[in-house]
């Protein structure tokens, strides 16, 4: 085979890996169609979109860079409180709050990134858990700013772009959250398929070889941790703005654990894992809450245990088989 041929094949292969698969369009069309199909479920759909964004953020570090975290709620909370405070004290414009919320969380991610660069999985889990609890404690003790246990009340959001007003049924909320999710998803998709994204996968797969190939590991990890924090901040800001309320619950440990479960359900390391997981998780939660609202936590726990003990292989095997049947070729999401 000639060199030119091979060069063309290499390029073709690289293009194919990043191209949009038809099934991906279906996902987004369905998400948009839900707006019309389930007009009574828009509040739930809004929650799904926000959780999906939060899980996408976690996937960026867990699935693509191999950094495990048990304290991701710290960034969700940072974004939520920042957006809430901006709305209360500065401006009611949602987009301004969203951007500043992302920036604040990103900054927190950048500042704390040196702490997760060192050590193994175990120390990372402990350190992130510690940081998460630290943020909760901080929000609790800064009652003059955060409202303490009462939370931030009386948030009134302005119109998005001066046009779309938030309503009681979640119409604007879902459209807003879905749009933000989509835009950030497209950005994340671009990033994971870039040379930078490839180097993250290298670090996740084999740090020794990555370092021996010239990848400056600490810088790359710090960068993706910051990015992930900013994404979580966006999810927090959306949460604060669409519910017009922020409480200590956004920083609670169960948030970090839930989003981990979402990612485990959907599968880490492909960008749709967070979306699939969030939909399954929220629908399950909704369904279980319908007949046993108080003991939802028990079922979450049971799912976690069952998943890790073997249910995951069964579920993901099923999903893979389904995807293989539908598409007939390797998905472009990984």
């Amino acid at each position: 085979m000639s060199t030119a041929d091979l060069t063309a094949r290499v390029r073709g292969s690289l293009v194919l890996a990043r191209k949009w698969h038809p099934a991906e369009f279906v996902v987004w069309v369905m998400a948009a169609a839900a707006f019309v199909l389930f007009p009574r479920q828009l509040l739930l759909l809004n929650e799904i979109a926000i959780l999906a964004l939060f899980a996408l953020s976690l996937d960026l570090i867990v699935g693509y860079a191999g950094i495990v975290s048990l304290g991701h709620a710290a960034f969700l909370g940072m974004g939520a409180y920042t957006a809430g405070l901006i709305a209360l004290h500065v401006t009611a414009d949602p987009l301004v709050g969203l951007v500043i919320g992302m920036a604040a969380s990103g900054l927190l991610g950048l500042v704390t990134s040196p702490l997760v660069l060192k050590g193994n999985d175990l120390t990372r889990l402990m350190v992130t858990l510690g940081i998460g609890l630290l943020m909760l404690e901080l929000a609790n003790s800064l009652g003059w700013l955060t409202g303490g246990a009462d939370g931030l009340q009386g948030i009134a959001m302005g119109k998005i772009l001066g046009i779309f007003e938030f309503d009681l049924f979640g119409k604007t909320a879902y459209a807003y959250s879905l749009t933000v999710l989509f835009l950030l998803f497209v950005l994340a998709r671009r990033i994971v398929h870039s040379p930078f994204g490839l180097s993250l996968r290298a670090v996740r797969d084999n740090p020794l070889r990555a370092a021996s190939s010239g990848v400056p590991i600490p810088w790359r990890l710090a960068a993706v941790y910051t990015l992930s924090a900013a994404y979580a901040g966006a999810a927090g800001a959306l949460l604060a703005q669409t519910t017009q309320f922020v409480s200590l619950d956004v920083l609670d440990f169960h948030r970090s654990a839930d989003v981990m479960l979402v990612l485990i359900i959907g599968g880490a390391g492909w960008l749709y894992g967070g979306i699939v997981g969030a939909a399954v998780f929220k629908l399950l939660q909704d369904w279980i809450a319908w007949f046993t609202p108080q003991y939802w936590q028990f079922w979450i726990g049971l799912f976690l245990v069952a998943f890790v003990l073997g249910g995951r292989e069964i579920l993901h095997g099923g999903i893979r088989a389904l995807v293989a049947r539908v598409s007939g070729r390797r998905g472009g999401g990984s």
Partner: peptide
Amino acid sequence: LYRPMYAKSHLDQVMFSIGLVFMAVAAMKY
């Protein structure tokens, strides 16, 4: 339950044991 978990990753172990905690908390409440 624990024995099959030893060979798994720290993350799996953590999620598994968090699951147990959640179950224990809810069961005790009940």
